[in-house]
């Protein structure tokens, strides 16, 4: 069997005495949605930061398609096909939607300062290509009609879609979504759920951190549960729903989120 798209082994991220992530193993296979859930402070965001290269883990390794990428800089990991979104939707608010997304394609271009000053054919071709790809990504995310508006002026849900378009324009193999549905209502959440499903159907594996349990249960092929940095359970949505350890640690008895 070939190596999974993403394999995380014995991953640990310690901040002084605090073990934000403690000896976590996790595989994200191609073409699937893997959700990482857990109560606040369980280490989910830290886990994402380590996988995307923003933190260098204290222990363990991260491998993409069997290649060790532990400790590589974020832009190197991004160029190996890992795209991510941020919990607080990070975008460039003053810039237009299309301009925001174009920059996501930069990693595939080679134009340098000389190309810019001499306005070479390469620069023009690449710029046009970035534009076209960005428009395709916006169309895929269902927000092409907003392309000319400043990001600061569009609704929250649209911004989340633009953030996903920005991640997709690089044509990643793996998309890490950090709480994509935070701060939007039920109806918008189901729209976003449909978009994420469409992303996976297009052949991109998704790893998702989310609090909205309905979304997680609807979408996920597999769920990994973290609590206080440790993996306490892993399985299909059905298995997780019935797991007493999980209910105890996270769902907390009768309080269904």
């Amino acid at each position: 069997m070939s190596a999974p798209l993403l394999r995380v082994e014995h991953l640990g991220m310690h901040f002084g005495g605090l073990k934000a992530v403690d000896d976590v193993d996790l595989d994200v296979p191609e073409g699937e949605i893997t959700a990482v859930i857990g109560p606040n402070g369980a280490g989910k965001s830290t886990f994402f930061n380590v996988v995307s290269g923003f933190c260098t883990p204290t222990t363990g390794r991260v491998a993409l398609n069997g290649v060790d990428v532990t400790g590589l800089a974020p832009h190197r990991i991004a160029r190996l096909g890992v795209a991510r979104t941020f919990q607080t939707t990070k975008l460039f608010p003053e810039a237009e939607v299309l301009d925001n997304v174009i920059i996501g394609r930069r990693q595939h271009t080679k134009s340098n300062v000389l190309d810019a000053i001499l306005r070479t054919k390469r620069l023009r071709t690449e710029a046009a290509e970035c534009r076209e790809r960005a428009r395709q990504a916006l169309e895929f995310a269902g927000v092409l009609h907003l392309e000319a508006l400043p990001v600061g002026s569009i609704p929250q849900e649209a911004r989340k879609r633009v953030a996903i378009a920005l991640a997709l324009v690089a044509e990643p193999q793996l998309l890490l979504l950090d709480e994509p549905a935070a701060g939007i209502n039920e109806e918008e959440t189901s729209g976003l759920t449909a978009l994420i499903r469409k992303v996976v159907e297009s052949g991109i594996a998704v790893c998702l951190v989310e609090h909205k349990m309905r979304m997680v249960m609807d979408l996920s092929d597999r769920i990994v549960v973290l609590n206080q940095g440790k993996k306490i359970a892993e399985g299909t949505p059905e298995e997780i729903r019935g797991d007493p350890t999980v209910i105890d640690a996270y769902l907390g008895g009768s309080s269904h989120a």
Binding site: G53, F54, A78, F86, I103, Q107
Partner: peptide
């Protein structure tokens, strides 16, 4: 565009491979 992306959010710029 790359300069401006880094100015606006270095974190996001790095996440998109810059």
């Amino acid at each position: 565009r790359t300069f401006v992306a880094v100015r606006n959010s270095e974190e996001l710029a790095r996440a998109v491979g810059i």
